[in-house]
């Protein structure tokens, strides 16, 4: 039977968000292939967590537990998963979240197995022959490419967080109560002889830099067209009166007007706001790929030909400096 494997990553005792997204997509793909959805879990004391995978109708979990697996060791994780492939049969595909860990581990496993790895996919589909169509944004930021690995198995891919649809979690948990428990196969981790070449020296939790951007219902985002810190303050003032979070394109971050954690797009965050207002943003896909959902999108840009006007619901062709101050005043006036 054809197998679809997902590497289920957890941080601080919880599945990463992209793990849930991958599992929904992978279940779907496995069903289309009349195959099984099997999940790899590595860690220390993660058996209870692994049991929660039943909400995604997982067929089997390959569970590798060891105190040393608490810390991501590239060699140990790679060899443990390469062992799984030789022990339990080569799957059609192994999917990873495009997190720090996934982007490190997936290409290494692909190289060990001599197969292909598609990076940072934003969508996954199957073609009529059951090949995985791995949709990646790229080549300068104006185009999508469909990557296939036609003659090698497994097909390895990393998928960018926030790109695939996920189910509501409460709805999932309710359903899960009725589902049968997941079959758990315990597997030994593999410690290659040069394991000691990488040793954990210290760990520091990063301060939670929650900008609230990903959960924001309203977002005011700025790009290169803002052209200076004074303009950026004006944008922040508008965001403030609208009760919106501030977002940015890469050029705005590179200019230093906004911090890196406010970046939306290919190398930043994926957002699903009800209201998005983009100011001085050209509409390069590197940014707009990070705007998902069915919210109302608005753009203000001086250039009537800007690509952003083909991607939004309402456009204003004007210098933002003339619009923003009156917009701010009008919002305040309407607020009373």
């Amino acid at each position: 039977m054809k197998q679809v494997w997902v590497f289920a990553e957890h941080q601080a005792g919880q599945w990463t968000s992209v793990t849930g997204e991958l599992l929904v997509a992978a279940r779907n793909i496995a069903d289309q292939l009349n195959g099984e959805l099997n999940v790899i879990v590595c860690g220390d004391q993660v058996e209870e967590l692994a049991a929660t995978l039943k909400q995604w109708k997982v067929d089997r979990v390959y569970l590798s537990q060891h105190p040393e697996l608490n810390f991501y060791h590239p060699l140990v994780y790679t060899e443990t998963i390469v062992d799984l492939v030789s022990e339990y049969g080569c799957p059609e595909m192994i999917l990873f979240g495009a997190t720090y860990l996934g982007r490190d581990l997936a290409p290494a496993i692909a190289a060990r197995l001599g197969t292909g790895c598609a990076a940072d996919c934003c969508d996954l589909k199957l073609d009529e022959n059951g090949n995985l169509l791995q949709i990646v944004p790229g080549l300068g930021g104006t185009i999508f490419a469909t990557i296939v690995t036609p003659f090698h198995r497994p097909q390895v891919a990393t998928v960018k967080p926030g790109m695939l649809e996920t189910l509501g979690s409460s709805e999932n948990e309710d359903k899960a109560k009725a589902l049968k428990p997941v079959e758990v196969v315990k597997v030994e981790p593999r410690f290659p002889q040069n394991t000691a070449a990488i040793q954990l020296h210290s760990v520091k939790q990063k301060p939670a830099k929650e900008s609230g951007l990903q959960a924001a219902k309203r977002i005011v985002a700025g790009g290169a067209g803002i052209s200076g810190p004074e303009g950026w303050s004006l944008l922040e003032e508008l965001a403030d009166v609208l009760g919106a979070a501030v977002g940015a394109t890469r050029p705005a971050v590179d200019e230093g007007w906004a911090s890196h954690d406010l970046m939306i797009g290919q190398s930043g965050k994926t957002v699903r706001p009800e209201l998005y207002l983009g100011i001085g943003i050209s509409g390069d896909m590197m940014h707009t790929i990070g705007i998902k959902g069915k919210g109302t999108l608005i753009a203000i840009n001086q250039d009537p030909k800007a690509a952003i006007f083909k991607q939004v619901d309402y456009g204003i062709v004007a210098d933002y400096r003339s619009i923003l101050p009156v917009l701010i005043e009008e919002v305040k006036r309407r607020e009373g």
Partner: peptide, 12 residues
């Protein structure tokens, strides 16, 4: 650095 931690590693 990953999404939640900063780690120092001693590598040979």
């Amino acid at each position: 650095e990953d999404e939640v931690e900063q780690r120092e590693l001693l590598v040979q």
